[in-house]
């Protein structure tokens, strides 16, 4: 899933300040799961914004709506009427959702209310961890299902750096060293030999380094 975190009230206030009628638009998929932009967060943020403006003697009209997914046209359409009634949209979706809405409604300012942070998993209640950078050339088979691109702070492809200590990464004692995990897992799988092989420099063309990417599925294009 995509993991994000709601921006601070102060920053959101700043960006919505010019608008009198605001649609706070939630997304019911990833950002809902990470408590950044689902229905509950839409309600809480709207209430907080109203209180914040009222306190300063300003008024703002806020409408609240949450659609299933802001990154799919089918669901975006459900927001069309609400969007037409307001002067701006504060989207609590990930960056993709915000842009999908903006692309669809050319004349309405669409503002981000969430900082999109990573592709990750819910490791346990309240804890989300980064797992994938979308490099476009997945090599998890070699690394025992632990990604050195996203989970090693130096993206090392040929083994741990000299800072790996007690299973933790040199950058932070709270961060696991991906390479320790790779080695532990490959040892358990009896595949440690994977790591004797030299891994050549990664071809980053498939990653974001090659510019914005596109996926075309001819079989689905009509």
């Amino acid at each position: 899933m995509i993991v994000g975190k709601q921006k601070s009230i102060a920053e959101i206030r700043e960006i919505v300040l010019p608008y009198k009628k605001l649609l706070v638009l939630g997304c019911g998929t990833c950002v809902k799961t990470c408590f950044a932009g689902g229905e509950d967060e839409v309600a809480t943020l709207s209430s907080a914004l109203r209180l914040s403006f009222k306190k300063d003697g300003r008024s703002i009209y806020i409408e609240e709506l949450t659609v299933e997914r802001q990154c799919e046209d089918e669901f975006i359409r459900e927001a069309a009427v609400a969007i037409s009634k307001n002067t701006a949209v504060l989207s609590l979706a990930c960056g993709a959702g915000v842009q999908a809405i903006a692309r669809r409604f050319a004349n309405v300012p669409v503002l981000p209310g969430v900082n999109t942070t990573f592709i990750g998993v819910l490791e346990k209640q309240g804890l989300f961890t980064e797992e994938c950078l979308g490099c476009g050339d997945c090599q998890l088979a070699v690394f025992g299902g632990v990604c050195p691109v996203s989970r090693c702070a130096k993206k090392l492809q040929n083994g741990p750096c000299g800072g790996s200590r007690n299973g933790k990464c040199e950058i932070n004692p709270d961060t696991d060293c991906a390479w320790q995990q790779i080695i532990t897992r490959l040892t358990a799988l009896g595949q440690l030999d994977n790591l004797r092989k030299y891994n050549p420099p990664k071809d980053w063309r498939t990653s974001h380094a090659g510019g914005p990417r596109k996926l075309v599925r001819e079989d689905h294009v009509i």
């Binding site: 040929n158 083994g159 741990p160 750096c161 000299g162 800072g163 790996s164 200590r165 007690n166 299973g167 060293c177 390479w179 320790q180 080695i183 532990t184 040892t187 440690l192 790591l195 004797r196």
Partner: peptide, 10 residues
């Protein structure tokens, strides 16, 4: 550094 077993492979 750790993991020690791997240091020589590296």
């Amino acid at each position: 550094a750790d993991p020690f077993e791997y240091r020589v492979i590296r």
